[in-house]
Amino acid sequence: MTIPNIVGAGLIVIGAGLGIGRIGGSAMDAIARQPEASGKIQTAMLIAAALIEGIGFAALFAA
């Protein structure tokens, strides 16, 4: 692993982490606002997080 690779991997992790964090936070807000819709929100949250995670992993393997 060369240094640019490591830096790139770090950037990817930061980006993906921020993205998933935002999704999680927004989902929490949404659940707090509408607790009765928590099931649907959780599902949507997991899907969105999984998609970001997938992109993140793909980029990590490319790096």
């Binding site: 999984a50 998609l51 995670e53 997938g54 992109i55 992993f57 793909a58 990590l60 393997f61």
Partner: peptide, 11 residues
């Protein structure tokens, strides 16, 4: 399907 593959593998 590629992301499905990578996600499971990587996790």
């Amino acid at each position: 399907p590629f992301s499905l593959m990578i996600r499971l593998y990587a996790n």
